Amino acid sequence: NICFQTEVSSNELGLNLGSDQKVFDFVVKTANKTYLIETNFYSVGGSKLNEVARSYIEISEKISCINGFEFIWITDGQGWLSSKNKLEQAYKSVRIYNLATLHSFISGLKKCLK
């Protein structure tokens, strides 16, 4: 019973992310917070993963300055085995879940909705 929207642009939400206009995979709104969610899965490594992590670190830092919004990144896959350093770096400023830990985020959302 979690209400969400898919493919929502930052402009639709009234967010000013500077020169970045972002379309989020999912948006979940609770009474106190709006969660902006990006999802991906990588079966192989490569430079793309490093670029995505860097980009999401920047987006998360911008969103963390906006009251009532939080950026969430759900990612998984064996591709991250070759890019652990960048993923570890992202953990410092991005709230990250994988398929094994996603239940904790969903449980927290359900508590907010009661």
Rank of each mutant, 00 (worst) to 15 (best):
N50G: 04
N50L: 03
L99G: 14
S47G: 09
I96K: 15
K29F: 07
W80R: 08
E88M: 12
N50S: 04
Q89D: 07
S60N: 07
K29I: 13
N85V: 06
A90S: 14
V94Q: 05
G46E: 14
Y91R: 14
Y56L: 09
N85Q: 09
Q21N: 15
A53M: 12
T30M: 01
T30W: 00
F24L: 07
S93T: 13
K22A: 02
L36W: 02
S43V: 14
V27W: 00
K86I: 14
Q21K: 15
R54T: 04
I59S: 00
A53F: 01
S60R: 12
C65F: 11
Q89P: 05
V52C: 11
Y35K: 01
L87M: 09
F26S: 04
C65I: 05
V94H: 07
R54E: 04
R54Y: 09
E88I: 09
T39S: 13
S47N: 08
L81M: 05
S93N: 15
N32F: 02
G68A: 11
V52L: 14
K62Q: 01
K84A: 04
Y91H: 10
C65E: 09
E70K: 15
F24M: 10
A53E: 02
V27E: 00
D25L: 15
Y35P: 00
E51R: 07
G79P: 04
I66M: 09
G79I: 01
N67M: 12
D76Q: 13
Y56M: 13
K92P: 10
K48Q: 08
K22T: 02
A53Q: 05
V44Y: 06
K33R: 12
S83N: 11
N50V: 04
S43L: 12
I72K: 01
Q89N: 12
S47A: 13
F69P: 00
R54C: 08
K86F: 11
S60V: 09
L99W: 12
T39C: 15
F24W: 04
G79V: 05
D25G: 15
L49R: 01
W73S: 00
I74T: 07
L87F: 06
N67W: 14
V52T: 13
Y56Q: 06
L99Y: 14
Y56W: 14
T39N: 15
K29Q: 05
N67I: 13
V52E: 08
S60E: 06
A53Y: 01
Y42I: 14
I74V: 13
S93M: 12
L81R: 04
N67R: 10
R54P: 11
I72V: 08
Q21D: 14
K84I: 02
F24P: 00
S93E: 09
N98F: 07
N32Y: 02
R95M: 02
R54M: 06
R54I: 05
Y97L: 03
Y97P: 00
N67D: 11
V44C: 13
T34R: 00
N98L: 11
F71D: 00
E61G: 12
R54Q: 10
G77C: 08
G68T: 05
F71Q: 01
N85C: 03
T34C: 08
F69S: 00
F71H: 03
F26Q: 08
I96C: 07
E70R: 12
G79D: 03
S55G: 06
Y91M: 10
K33D: 02
I66K: 02
K92W: 10
S55N: 07
N40K: 15
